[in-house]
Design a protein around this nucleic acid. Structure first.
Lengths: 205, 205
DNA sequence: TAGATTGTTAATCGATTAACAATC
DNA sequence: TAGATTGTTAATCGATTAACAATC
């Protein structure tokens, strides 16, 4: 892999390629082409070739890409050739669903704890987890050296919690609260706000 | 509003502006500037002015934008100056959380039904809803003239359900299943896949 | 070999930013 | 009036596409 800076827009497409390739592998396929992969994910073949070639020469002229090989490379590039421990903050309906979500399996993530500041929820069982007090959160995260958090608290609490997560050393936040977060440059945030996603489509109706 | 085509990337930012303005209004603020709004959402002032000016001259030199006025305009542009009925397909943990989600309130959406093909779930109560059989889904959607669906079924079922939704006249799908969907051009899809979002950040860790 | 498909270059297309006249 | 901030233009920057030599 070379060292020139990769545009964020390319990084954003890699997980989509990875997901499609994983599915192809599950179906028992061995090779694919930029053309075929492009049809699956709705992206042009030229762009897929260009994106992938940022990281090396992973294909073969005439035959395309070995699915297993490309999977390995993409996992390595995206650093999901390992399992990341993740914490959930906020034990409401959404936190509940996220903590129990089976879709992290085989994708590089594992939920290891769930926190809430509501004392009536602390100690409650959620799937395999016991809800812990937000008071112990910073310590727990720092001790366990956890780098990723999912935030499912109300918008009014989200910025405060985000500040604590940053203070605890978290470097990636998946934010389910419907609010933009201010965090330092070295911390990444991704937003999941169903209303925002829907509003992006109603424009076209 | 003029008629020239608006780039999708601009459409995608409008809901973020809307959300930030709604928050400012809730805090009792009356006016804002492209500068201030930009700091809230992490977008340059120039870009915000350019985006907004695609739709009209909504600001005043020297004073900025009236928050209430801009809210009205953005709601109108995004067509959320009304309430859209939405169906949920898939009554698992995620469908459960989505159906009960309070965050659609005041954002233009209302969940009106939830479907599942698992007969053991049909008839079950989820919040204010009773889970209905997927068999009646197409009819129900067509009769009620529903245009928006949220998809929270396993990846293996998602394409089949999407085909049915399209057939029923749905024009916007919020897809929680971890798979790319093939739909006709006139149908919009937005993707929520927590693993994909997380993988977009692990690259930088 | 003939056919297929990559990796890469150059051309095109589109988005962002900087700057400032207009004006509240 | 003086200061602030918009809307817009032109310049810059970045992303996508088309095309094709290289080669499996």
């Amino acid at each position: 892999m070379n060292t020139k800076k990769i545009p964020d827009i390319i990084v954003g497409r890699l997980p989509v390629y990875l997901r499609a390739l994983q599915r192809m592998a599950d179906m028992g396929l061995k090779t694919t082409s930029s053309q075929e992969l492009g049809e699956h994910v709705g992206i042009s073949a030229a762009q897929i070739r260009k994106d992938i070639s940022q990281f090396g020469e992973f294909g073969k002229q005439g035959t395309g890409y070995s699915i297993e090989f490309l999977l390995d490379k993409l996992r390595e590039i995206l650093k999901v050739d390992r399992i990341w421990d993740v914490v959930v903050v906020g034990a409401g309906d959404m936190g509940h669903a996220v903590a129990n979500y089976q879709g992290f399996q085989d994708r590089g993530f594992r939920v290891v704890a769930i926190f809430d500041n509501d004392k009536s929820k602390v100690g409650m069982k959620i799937g395999n987890f016991v809800v812990e007090d937000t008071e112990v959160m910073v310590d727990r995260i720092r001790t366990a050296d956890i780098k990723i958090a999912m935030l499912s608290v109300p918008a009014s609490a989200a910025q405060d919690v985000a500040d604590k997560l940053v203070q605890a050393g978290v470097r990636a936040i998946l934010n389910y609260a419907p609010i933009s977060l201010n965090v330092p440059n070295q911390v990444k945030v991704q937003y999941i706000d169903p209303s925002t996603h829907l509003q992006r489509m109603t424009f076209y109706l």
